[in-house]
Amino acid sequence: MLQIFLVTVPFFALIAAGYAAARGGALPLAAIPGLNVFVLYFALPCMLFRFGAGAPIDQLLDGAVALIWGVSALVVVGATVALTRNERIGWNDAAFGALVAAFPNTGFMGVPLLVAILGAQAASPTIISIAFDMIVTSSLCIALSRLGGADGHGAAKAMGQALRGILQNPMPWSILLGAAASASRLSLPGPVDRTVTMLAEAASPVALFTIGAVLARSAVLAREHRASALVAQAMGDATSPVRQAPMRDVLPVVAIKLVAHPLLVYGVARGAMALGLPLERQALVTIVLVAALPSASNVSMLAERFGADNGRVARIILWTTVAAFFTFPLAVGWLQ
C-alpha cells in the first residue's frame, strides 16, 4: 500500500499546488482559462494521439471494454437521477449530478496516473472510456437536463449544442487520428514527432495543476457569490437569495462516484466474463480504476452553460478529488 501511495501522491500534490497557487493569488484567476486552453487544445490531444498511435488497433476497438463501461455508465446515470431528483433538485440539476457521478476525470488525470501505475497497456481501455463519456454519457445527461422544460425545443437545442461541443473538442479527433495511425502503422516525421512528444510530456503536470486551479476558482467564485447575495439581501433585494447546496445533496453523489461506480463496473465486468465475454484481467483492472477516479472538472463548465446548480457540481468535484486521495490507493490495493 505504501508503494501505491508513493506513486499517487505526486499526482495529488500537483492538484494541491494548483489549488494553493490560485487561492493564494500567485496564479491570477484570469490566467486559468489560458491553462485550460493549453491542456485541452495542445498538450492533452498530443498525449492521447501518442498513446493511441502506440497501441495495437484491436485494443482500441475492444468491444468488451466499451460494452461494460457503457452499461455501467448508463446505470450510474439512471440511478443517480432516480435517487437525487426531489423538490429541491429538478431535472436539470439531477442530470448534471448524474453526469458528475458517471464522468471520471479521465483525460486530465486518469491517463497519466493509470499509465504510471499499470504501464502503457492501460492507455487503450482508458481511451475507450473517454470516447464513450464524451460522446454518449455527456449527450444523454444534457438531453435529460431538458426534460423539465415546457416543450421539446429546449432538448433539441441542447442536443445541437452538445453535438457542436463534441465536434469542436480536439480530444475525440486526437483519439481518432491516433487509431488511424495505429491501424496504418504510419509514423510522424522526426521534427513533428518531437514537437508532439514535448507537448504530450507537458500534459500531465499542467493538467493536474490546472485541476487544482479550477477547483480553487470555483471556491473563490462561490464565496464571492454568497457575499454579494448577503449584501443584496441586507439592502432588501429579495430576488438575490443565498443559495448553497446542502451536504445532503452533495455527499450521496460523492459516494456514488467513488464507491458505487467502481464496484458496479467490477460487478458488470465479472458478470460479463462469466457469460463468456472476453475481457483481459489488465483491462478489467484499468476500467475499474478509471471509475474510481474523481469527477471530471469540465462538468462544472457544462453545468454553468446549461443553467444547472454549478455550485453543487463544483462541490461534488472538489470533494471527490479530496476523498480520492484516500479511496483511489485503496482501490488499487484491492485490485492488486
Rank of each mutant, 00 (worst) to 15 (best):
G271N: 09
F209I: 09
L289D: 11
T320Q: 06
Q233G: 10
L251D: 00
A283V: 04
R226G: 06
V285G: 03
L277C: 09
G267P: 00
A227H: 10
A245E: 04
H261F: 15
A296L: 10
E201C: 12
R312F: 05
F306V: 04
V253N: 00
I211G: 00
F306M: 06
A292D: 11
A219P: 13
A296W: 08
L264E: 08
I256G: 01
M235I: 07
S295Q: 04
R281A: 13
V290Y: 03
A222M: 14
V220P: 06
R217L: 14
T320N: 05
S204R: 04
R223T: 10
A255H: 01
P205V: 14
V242W: 12
V288N: 05
M273K: 11
T286N: 07
V254K: 00
M198V: 13
N310K: 13
A255V: 13
R270C: 10
A222Q: 13
V313P: 01
R315V: 05
Q233K: 07
A216K: 01
L318S: 08
A207F: 05
R243A: 03
S297F: 00
I317C: 00
F306H: 11
I211T: 00
G271W: 10
E201M: 14
N310H: 05
P246E: 11
R217K: 15
L221Y: 04
A207D: 05
S218A: 15
G236R: 11
V313C: 04
A269R: 06
V214Q: 09
V253D: 01
